[in-house]
Design a protein around this nucleic acid. Structure first.
Ligand SMILES: [Zn+2]
Ligand SMILES: [Zn+2]
Ligand SMILES: [Zn+2]
Ligand SMILES: [Zn+2]
Lengths: 146, 146
DNA sequence: CCTAATGTCTCTAGCAACTATAGCTTCAAG
DNA sequence: CTTGAAGCTATAGTTGCTAGAGACATTAGG
């Protein structure tokens, strides 16, 4: 049995984060020692590692909640899990597209500025006027979820 | 002079957002009409457009605050503004690198899953074990702000 | 001129996913 | 037995908004 500190160290998760996960019901309430301190076994360790890895891959806590409850029913079809992963992939691809456009514009701004005074700064100039941009990089209004 | 609604429409910014910007001091306190409603002139319009464009390019409100106060002193050197833009470019590049790695892993997961039961689901399997990943995609620091 | 429909006002609370602080109690090493 | 690290709870702060309540202002139609 691990204390919360050891568990956090093992999983690469900060202690308050573990308590937060318990509070929102992502981790079950931990066993307690005689002195009221949390104790964790191997199952909790695996669950936390799963959460950490999914977070590292950009899944939201809501998606992770669903993935965890799916993984608790091994006999069912994995279609729902695959759908969550595909949705996450789509989300990442759309952010990638947007960031690529931003990178283009930021590079242009930075390269075009010859230095000098603010009055002649290309950075300030472009920020003041989107028509000086090469691409349409605007923030998409809404995301669709299927 | 524009009302807050017209200004928001003109700049593509929602009304509560404008009030929020005023509240945090990013926009100066607006003039008021006889009936206590906010009124905006051309200068406020330009300032809001600047903010909106910079937000679209991913700058934080803190960075925008600095950029605005720089642009209010046209005689000074633009080095500080350029530095902010370069930092933002670096930030975007690092997020791009990370998202690219995530995309790789998510694609692998999704492609490798042959369907079937959760017990055999490659998505769940990979999420349970980072050593099944092809790249090191771990979270170096901050994320989010789509 | 009156009314109904918008628009605007202030204030508060909520979202994600933590992080930080304060003021305790418990544990382990020496 | 003492001390300092680690744990506990509870609350508030972070970023950049967004949503709601309940009251006042403005505008268009009849
Ligand atoms: Zn410059
Ligand atoms: Zn632009
Ligand atoms: Zn699957
Ligand atoms: Zn991995």
């Amino acid at each position: 049995m691990l204390t919360i500190g050891k568990l956090g160290e093992a999983a690469g998760v900060k202690v308050p984060t573990i308590r937060y996960y318990e509070q929102i019901g992502l981790l079950p309430e931990a066993e307690r020692s005689a002195g009221n301190q949390r104790l964790y076994g191997r199952k909790a360790q695996e669950r936390l590692a799963f959460i950490r890895h999914a977070r590292d891959l950009g899944f939201t806590l809501e998606a992770i909640r669903d993935l965890l409850s799916l993984s608790d029913r091994p006999d069912q079809s994995c279609a729902a899990a695959d759908a969550i992963a595909k949705a996450q992939l789509a989300e990442v691809e759309s952010r990638l597209a947007r960031l690529t456009a931003l990178k283009t514009e930021l590079e242009r701004m930075v390269v075009q500025c010859a230095g000098g005074s603010i009055a002649d700064c290309r950075v300030i100039e472009v920020l003041s006027d989107h028509s000086l941009c090469a691409t349409d990089h605007r923030h998409p209004e809404s995301e669709v979820q299927s």
